[in-house]
Computed example of a mutant assay.
Amino acid sequence: MSSQQLPLLEVPVTALAQAQRYPRLRYMGSKYRLLPTLAKVFEEVGGSTALDPFAGSGVVSYLLKAQGFEVTSRDYLNFPVTLTKAACVNQRQRLSKDEVRSIAEGGNLDGRDFISRTYRGRFFTPEDQLFLDSAWSRIDRLQGEKRDLAIAALVLAAARKQPRGVFTVTGLRYDDGRDSLHKPLNEHFVGCVQAWNDAVFEGQRCQSFRGEAVEATPSTDLVYLDPPYAPPNDDNDYLKRYWFLEGLSDYWEHGTASVMHDTLTRKLPKRPTAFGSKRTIEAALAALFERFSGSTIVLSYGSNAVPSVDTLMAMLRDVKGSAPEIIDLQHRYHFGTHRNAARREATEYVLIAP
């Protein structure tokens, strides 16, 4: 590898301290552990505007906001957009104790029961499912950032109650004895609201949109790319793992009719994306690099994915005219329970292409 190897770097304490307030969601490929490295990279790259078109858990968008960037976040799923609206777009709104108590304890305002009917006997207790229906009957009466905060807290509560935070199986197959797996969901919700309230701060103006990364407007100083990694022998289908959070984020507004009732988990159908297959991801990445060639590109990628890092460096060199700088560090992924899961121990690369 001919490009310069950069050492691990120290971090601006104030921005990192703020970023570490972001509520932690167990999410495939999440960059919580890479925040110190990314914070220093973003500081050295500089600029005033940033685009995060694969927002995911939202933590990198939040870090960029903490560092003073005007951030535009984007994701092809709805619930990550809601998270970034709650903590990045939102500058000062918080839910009051009375509003939280109303949602957690106030009862069902309109008799809705979609979750209780559709997912009876799946994932959560009848009491928890009644709470989710009831909570949404009240959240539906909120507007703006307070609505985003409440939905973000509901999503986080559901993720923390579900073993491993994924919805690929029912029951407690992965029950490791943690109290959080047995705490009532309304109690989870109250704690999650507090976490999101604590994360709110005023910074530069931010935006968040739902849509494919390639649809984002290429007009920012910095573009951070964290595309789904395409593993050679598995898939990177986020909807397969988090479809319940996706449905919960808008009360199945866009998916009620498409619930797959013939599946054990009553999941939502897969949404095809060019980043979801090793056969199409290289062309998809090439299109992204070309689209954002006028910005400094910072790319996160893993050694357990295709294309290889050497291929990525060559692609960036073709677009930018010079080889990118690269940082590499060991990183363990927390998903994968089958016999091949050892490949989740990987080298994480951060490529910087000015």
Results as ranks from 00 to 15, higher is better:
A158V: 14
A342D: 14
T296A: 15
A305C: 15
P23H: 00
T265K: 05
P272A: 14
P228S: 15
T337W: 04
L268C: 03
A66F: 09
H188N: 11
L316W: 07
A15T: 11
R339K: 14
L222D: 10
V45H: 05
H254F: 07
K40Q: 11
T37D: 07
S61E: 07
D234E: 09
F124G: 04
L316T: 10
F79D: 01
E145F: 02
L149G: 05
V223Y: 01
R279C: 00
F54Y: 14
A87M: 05
R26W: 04
F292V: 02
D262W: 09
D226T: 10
E44K: 13
W252N: 01
P324R: 15
R120Y: 12
S303T: 11
A287P: 00
Y224G: 02
F54M: 08
N197Q: 04
L312I: 13
F209G: 00
E70T: 14
G247I: 01
Q5L: 15
L63R: 07
T265N: 07
D328V: 06
T263D: 11
A216G: 12
T125E: 06
K320M: 07
D52H: 09
Y238S: 04
P53M: 14
H182M: 09
K85A: 08
K40W: 08
S134L: 06
M260I: 04
F209D: 09
A353K: 09
V166L: 06
E10D: 11
F244N: 06
E282D: 12
R317D: 02
G191R: 14
V169R: 07
E70F: 02
V155C: 15
K85D: 02
F289D: 04
R33F: 06
N340M: 10
D310I: 02
S48I: 08
A86K: 08
G211A: 08
R24W: 10
N90K: 08
E345Q: 08
Y119N: 13
D128V: 08
V11C: 15
T296V: 14
E290W: 13
K267E: 13
I352E: 07
D318Y: 03
Y76A: 04
T170E: 06
A287I: 01
Q93R: 11
S116K: 13
A341G: 00
D128Q: 05
E345Y: 09
N186Q: 10
L268F: 10
Y174N: 00
C206V: 06
V89W: 05
A158R: 11
A87C: 14
D221C: 11
D198T: 06
F131W: 09
G191V: 03
L329K: 13
V45C: 09
L63W: 12
Q143Y: 03
A230P: 00
D237T: 02
N78Q: 08
Q67I: 11
E212C: 01
F123H: 09
P269D: 08
M315K: 12
D221A: 14
R291V: 15
R266N: 11
T220S: 13
L130Q: 15
S116D: 11
G276I: 03
K40P: 01
I115H: 10
T273R: 15
L95G: 08
M28N: 02
F292D: 09
G276E: 10
P80C: 01
